[in-house]
Design a protein around this nucleic acid. Structure first.
Length: 821
RNA sequence: GCCGGGAUGGUGGAAUUGGUAGACACGCAGCACUUAAACUGCUGUGAGGCAACUCGUGCGGGUUCAAGUCCCGCUCCCGGCACCA
């Protein structure tokens, strides 16, 4: 009887040995080895390690351990993103200090993380709440302030009434709720600390070409930034004011039969005197505000608006006088907040013009597409007819055409292509080609306590000054009642006030807002690589050694938040010469989500939460890790329901692995040797592609075979190395049992012998008239005659293939297809 | 509505990128062990049929000796954006 698989004893033993020997610590860069910097999103130390953490950290450890055994210097750091609302809320609830609560949790969570047996580079850790960390967050902020990337802006912000703070656009979900607490967001006008991410809009889009990320993430970022290429054109009002509009279709300018201002547009109030229907206008503006707050999900897109009576504008191309409206389908926050309306070539303008009886002038004829006369049957046969039907409808003014084409009804521009006309017409009316973006600047000030104090002080005149480097870290005061009231808690700190006056002088006051935690996490990967440095956030040498990040594993929810913010942050630092790379992450992999056993997202209210600690106790860390890796391909953002039976199956597999040494003999069948080398080959291919599921399946196939046969000591030891990345504790224990004194995780990964990994014989399918009728087993180099002889020798197949043969298709190693007349 | 990604047994998922569909697991059924249950082991398991065989990768067409894989036309599901000019 083999030794019992006592997962608790094995895990405890090896976790202690690994920790004491520090075998996963990184130390200095070893330039004799290739480096690979693998990053996982640093967790918030909630004090409760959930299954998502295991999926995020323990599964990539397979990749890390394999890379290390392949001779690379793998850096896999872990840290804590520890500022933020949960700590504050928990502190309020339990009446403790957020600092103590957080520090306690970090210690506890480090232990929990240790229970994974994951090979983190613990000597490179950091926490965003450490003063020696946030000193640099603050220093970078002051550098941004000097360069006017950080500025005090004003305008409409997203206010979360539950959390009592402003949040950024990215942190408002599509349904208008708060990303943190799920409550409805309100719009509020107030001054705000902003970061000028919009200055980087083009580079944030264009540089996506240079990184190896999944297309869907790139596309989401592009859409979030929302670049539109077009022109700004100025219209003159009858009151003498100029109104500039943004349009992507300056080629349709001759068709602009009215213009629309957003209800919030500043010129409305300015032209109050010229308006004969001011009361109606004011009422409409009021309604717009109410509507916006009321129901943003209302998708009845019925157009509404009010004409500005007494005011007209002049179309700068045609010279025609056109009416001016205000309407809520024009958004104040996008473009210039005013549009030229071309009902014949824009669906929204068409709907509005139809309702208000405004003229539609067709100025673009769709392109005449010529198809070659020899086009294949079945390929859009009616194109020409459809086109002519359509152009009849267009000239009758019944249809909106939004596509490009040939310009008509536009005087000297007639006959030009839309593309040519765009620049030509813009030039003629003195407009300029320009881009507009959906992206807004990043609002980073928070009216809460538990965050990085914004390192700004105000002089007696109210002018903002950065806190100089010698006074950093600009510590978070502790003499504060941090309960949220809407007034920033730091405003109540006597100590902060006193500190400011002592350093800067009487009458100077501190900024009392703190930074968004997404600021803290925008650069943490730079601190990992030089976490002891007191003079710099990370030295250029350390950056040269380790950056860029070769691989970044994370969750899909960060696509337009953290991933966008940190790319911007890196670029801003890059422009100041502070970092060596302009893109931080070379490759990105988004993982899926683990659902509860009922197929729903895990939540306390549904009672379907899986506690990883329970399963670690019962079946062991190796089983939990392998089960999570076995569920499906890791690089896919699919959702995987937790299956109680599935994890039991993995545990069963490891039990059998534990007993495999009983099958060790002096010799083994060739089949076993061959299968071992096939397994090496399979793992060497699958692990770098994150196909841990099929890699584990290959290990199972091998174990199933060995249990029916036997295995030599040599092959057994090779197998243990294959197992090591997946089940590090068990592999280490079994390795020790073979008499080894050095950790198996410092060994090299086995190399496959290609001759042994290939079969001499192969079984191929035999088709007769394209239908599968049986199979034959042949030597790999058998030719067609040989294959046909094998068919003749097979009693069933020879009977079925009787008759006159018209054709034989033989693909060696794959298929034999016999076509009878 | 637009953009991106999907759809394969009762379940999670495999399939050398056009070549024996359903690997590996879970579940289920039967048998063995057991006083019994659990555990474990063995056998079976896409559907229909005693069988030969027929059907089968969301639906409808097509290309091919051969289609889960390629082409055309749909349906549904997931994610993102959404009056963005």
């Amino acid at each position: 009887m083999h030794k019992k698989f006592d997962n608790k004893a094995i895990e405890k033993k090896w976790q202690e040995i690994w920790k004491e020997s520090g075998i996963y610590d990184i130390g200095e860069r070893d330039t004799s080895k290739e480096k690979e910097y693998v990053l996982v999103e640093l967790p918030y130390p909630s004090g409760n390690l959930h299954i998502g953490h295991w999926h995020a950290f323990a599964v990539p450890d397979i990749y890390i351990r394999h890379g290390r055994m392949m001779g690379k210097q793998m850096i896999y750091p872990m840290g804590f993103d520890a500022f933020g609302l949960p700590a504050e809320n928990a502190a309020i609830k339990n009446n403790v200090n957020p600092k103590e609560w957080t520090e306690g949790n970090i210690e506890y969570m480090k232990e929990q993380l240790g229970s994974m047996g994951t090979s983190f580079s613990w000597d490179k850790t950091t926490a965003t709440t450490n003063p020696d960390y946030y000193k640099w967050t603050q220093w970078m902020f002051t550098q941004f302030f000097e360069k006017e990337i950080a500025y005090r802006g004003s305008g409409i912000v997203n206010w979360c009434p539950h959390d009592n703070t402003v949040i950024a656009n990215e942190q408002v979900l599509t349904d208008g709720t708060c990303e943190r607490c799920g409550n409805e967001i309100e719009k509020k006008e107030m001054p705000q600390w902003m970061l000028k991410i919009t200055d980087y809009a083009d580079r944030l889009i264009d540089d996506l070409e240079t990184v190896n990320w999944p297309d869907n993430i790139k596309e989401s970022q592009r859409r979030w930034i929302g670049r539109s290429e077009g022109a700004e054109i100025t219209f003159k009002l009858s009151t003498g004011d100029d109104v500039t509009v943004f349009t992507t279709r300056p080629d349709t300018l001759f068709g602009a039969t009215y213009m629309v201002l957003a209800p919030e547009h500043a010129l409305i109030e300015h032209n109050k005197g010229a308006l004969s229907n001011w009361d109606e206008v004011v009422a409409y503006i009021g309604n717009t505000k109410k509507k916006a707050e009321q129901d943003r999900l209302d998708d009845t897109k019925e157009k509404t608006g009010v004409r500005l009576e007494g005011i007209t504008a002049v179309n700068p191309a045609s010279g025609e006088e056109i009416p001016v409206f205000i309407a809520d389908y024009v958004l104040a926050g996008y473009g210039t907040g005013a549009i030229m309306a071309v009902p014949a070539h824009d669906e929204r303008d068409y709907a509005f013009a139809t309702k208000f009886g405004i003229e539609k002038i067709n100025v673009v004829a769709p392109l005449v597409i010529s198809y070659s006369s020899s086009h294949k049957i079945g390929e859009r046969p009616n194109v020409t007819e459809k086109l002519s039907e359509r152009s009849a409808a267009i000239s009758a003014g019944d249809v909106v055409t939004t596509e490009l084409g040939t310009v008509t009804n536009s005087r000297e521009f007639d006959g030009m292509s839309s593309e040519e006309a765009k620049t030509a017409i813009t030039q003629k009316v003195g407009g300029k080609m320009t881009n507009t973006y959906r992206l807004r600047d990043w609002s980073v000030g928070r009216q809460r306590y538990w965050g990085v104090p914004i390192p700004i002080v105000y002089d007696p005149e109210g002018k903002a000054h950065p806190v100089p480097k010698e006074h950093l870290p600009w510590l978070l005061p502790e003499d504060v009642d941090f309960r949220p009231t809407g007034v920033p808690p730091l405003a109540k700190s006597e100590e902060l006030k006193k500190r400011t006056e002592e350093i800067f002088g009487i009458g100077w006051t501190p900024e009392v807002e703190t930074l968004d935690t997404f600021v803290d996490s925008s650069w943490y990967f730079l601190r990992y690589i030089d976490n002891q440095n007191e003079d710099m956030f990370a030295s250029p040498e350390a950056q040269k050694d380790w950056m860029p990040i070769d691989l970044y594993f994370g969750g899909a929810e960060h696509t337009t938040m953290h991933l966008l913010y940190s790319r911007f942050w890196q670029k801003a630092l890059f422009d100041m010469g502070l970092v060596t790379e302009s893109e931080p992450y070379t490759k990105r992999i988004n993982r899926g989500l683990i659902l509860g056993p009922d197929g729903n997202k895990m939540s306390k209210s549904k009672g379907n939460v899986i506690d990883p600690d329970d399963h670690v106790q019962r079946v062991g860390a190796d089983s939990v890790k392998m089960y999570l890796a076995f569920m499906g391909p890791y690089a896919e953002t699919a959702n995987y329901p937790w299956d109680m039976g599935g994890i039991a199956g993995i545990r069963r597999f490891l039990e059998r692995v534990n007993g495999l040494s009983e099958h060790i003999t002096d010799s083994e069948p060739e089949e076993v040797t061959k299968q071992l080398h096939k397994t090496i080959l399979k793992l060497s291919k699958d692990i770098p592609e994150f196909k841990f599921n099929t890699a584990i399946s290959a290990l199972m196939i091998f174990v199933n075979l060995v249990e029916k046969q036997n295995i030599t000591q040599e092959s057994y030891e090779i197998f243990l190395k294959l197992l090591a990345p997946f089940a590090p504790h068990l592999a280490e224990e079994l390795n020790e049992a073979t008499g080894k004194s050095v950790s198996i995780h410092l060994d090299s990964f086995p190399e496959a012998d290609l001759n042994l990994a290939t079969d001499n014989e192969v079984t191929i399918g035999v088709q007769i008239n394209g239908k599968m009728r049986g199979s034959i087993t042949l030597a790999v180099d058998t030719d067609e005659d040989g294959a046909m002889k094998a068919v003749a020798a097979d009693s069933v197949l020879s009977e079925k293939s009787k008759g006159e043969i018209r054709k034989i298709i033989y693909v060696p190693g794959k298929i034999l297809n016999i076509i009878l007349v």
